[in-house]
């Protein structure tokens, strides 16, 4: 299975001092890029809020503010997190890859009102897939 990491369009690496943020693409399909494009049209203010959290996450060892980043409370999801657009519905699930580099990998989008636990489970499954197939 072909697994790649994509840069987030418009976010320069030079500003990402602690972590680099990337989106996960499998077989060329990138659900995070697709969601960001969709949110830009449907929820422009929430895209702004999510980008703010991405930037915060790249400059901190860990984001402490639970209004911006939350870790899954389900122990089965081991280290799956979500970035939150405050007062909105948009969320991005992610995990930290500390094995070879310091990378935050966004795996899948989620919109509030859906099944959050399943979205975290998907993030955890995609993380396992990434570690099995990463170059």
């Amino acid at each position: 299975m072909r697994v790649e990491l994509h840069e987030i369009p418009g976010l320069d690496d030079a500003c990402q001092t602690v972590w680099k943020v990337r989106s996960l693409a499998i077989e060329g399909k990138d659900s995070v890029q697709a969601a960001l494009v969709e949110w830009q049209k449907r929820y422009p203010n929430e895209l702004k809020a999510i980008v703010k959290v991405m930037k915060l996450a790249t400059q901190q060892q860990r984001v402490q503010n639970p209004k911006h980043v939350k870790k899954s409370s389900n122990p089965k999801h081991v280290d799956a997190y979500e970035m939150i657009a405050r007062t909105g519905v948009c969320r991005l699930m992610f995990f930290y890859d500390e094995q070879n580099a310091s990378i935050i990998i966004c795996t899948n989008p989620f919109e509030k009102g859906g099944d959050q636990d399943a979205a975290f489970a998907r993030c955890a499954a995609l993380r396992d897939l990434y570690f099995q197939h990463k170059p």
């Binding site: 369009p9 418009g10 399909k29 990138d30 697709a34 494009v37 830009q40 702004k48 980008v51």
Partner: peptide
């Protein structure tokens, strides 16, 4: 289930995020 994203869409997204 993941929709395909066009180059134009990505370019537009890049411009929007840079504008922030």
């Amino acid at each position: 289930s993941i929709p395909t994203v066009s180059t134009e869409d990505l370019h537009e997204l890049e411009k929007t995020i840079r504008s922030f």
